[in-house]
Design a protein around this nucleic acid. Structure first.
Length: 293
DNA sequence: AGCAAATTATGCCGTCGGAC
DNA sequence: GTCCGACGGCATAATTTGCT
């Protein structure tokens, strides 16, 4: 569905490799460790970096994001919060994510970003990708109307206006980047529909090796936000440990204050991912969420 | 009048609180 | 546990308005 994009330039038609290492103050030791990390995963640390081309019916997300509260689930009556270098909840203690910007929700931002990455996979990271809002809405299965165009515009703007800092021991160094590095559009900001987007090459760190998760897009994009986050967790593990109800609540940054209510919502989400055919079985027992894939 | 665009009405959805 | 309602976003239908 990305036929408005040119075919992937596979060759080594290089843009400046200086782009590849944007951090001016990176010390040699940390760079060496990071280079080794990339090399060990078959990636030339000098770039150019390109996402692996996953199948057209799938989308991909870094595990470090999938298991964190970067994308939240809250009632839409609750206004989006603003964060400034706030520590974002993460299931694993050894991963530290610090976020600055407007709260991103699983309801829209998560899907929009995944779709944009799908456009981006055809080119080396750092090169502009082009699409229009009609295409985006079709790919998200959002109906084509002005409101959804506006929703997409706002989402793109939120994805641009943030800083996500990920520190994971395994990476060899931390990365701080914005989910969208830069974008341009044609025409009026409120009405433009043709977009150009640049993704930061540093994002490759989060995808390097076996550190990201692929999901069946058709089913995934239809999930309710809560079910989507639940599946994010299960999908990102080969053999998922049972997840504590409370941990999952942290992962969603939910503001639900009634324990029983939370339990019942999660049970519904379990049923939903089962019905979607994404898992064999998912259930809540005592304070744990189990899955059978 | 004839048509399309704009506006309004109606009903559904997901999260969350609360009643029983 | 089930059920219902508030809330605001959304789709769709029904209706009005504006233009030629």
């Amino acid at each position: 569905m990305t036929n408005l994009l040119p075919a992937a330039p596979r060759g080594r038609r290089n843009t400046s490799t200086a782009l590849a290492l944007p951090d001016p103050a990176v010390d040699k030791l940390s760079k060496a460790r990071h280079d080794a990390f990339l090399r060990a995963r078959g990636i030339d640390p000098n770039g150019p970096f390109q996402l692996e081309i996953w199948p057209a019916d799938m989308r991909e997300m870094p595990n470090d994001y999938a298991r964190s509260a970067l994308f939240t689930v809250r009632n839409k009556t609750e206004p989006r919060a603003t964060f400034e270098t706030s520590l974002i909840f993460h299931v694993q203690k050894e991963v530290k994510i610090t976020y600055t910007g407007v709260e991103l929700r699983a309801d829209d931002d998560e899907l929009v970003w995944q779709q944009i990455l799908d456009y981006a996979k055809h080119k080396p990271l750092g090169e502009p990708i082009e699409f229009n809002l009609h295409q985006l809405c079709v790919d998200l299965n959002w109906s084509i109307n002005g409101r959804n165009y506006d929703k997409a515009r706002k989402s793109i703007s939120r994805l641009k206006a943030n800083e996500v800092r990920v520190e994971n021991e395994r990476h060899g160094r931390g990365v701080a980047l914005s989910l969208i590095r830069e974008y341009a559009f044609q025409g009026d900001g409120d009405k433009g529909t043709k977009y150009q987007i640049w993704i930061h090459p540093g994002l490759i760190t989060l995808f390097a090796g076996n550190t990201s998760t692929r999901v069946q897009w058709e089913q995934y994009r239809e999930l309710t936000p809560l079910a989507r986050r639940l599946f994010d967790y299960f999908a990102s593990h080969k053999a998922p440990f049972p997840l504590k109800l409370d941990t999952f609540k942290g992962m969603c940054a939910s503001s639900c204050s009634i324990e029983r209510k939370w339990r019942s919502m999660v049970r519904k989400a379990c049923e939903e991912i089962r019905l979607a055919g994404l898992v064999k079985k998912a259930w809540v027992d005592d304070d744990l969420i189990y899955v059978d894939r």
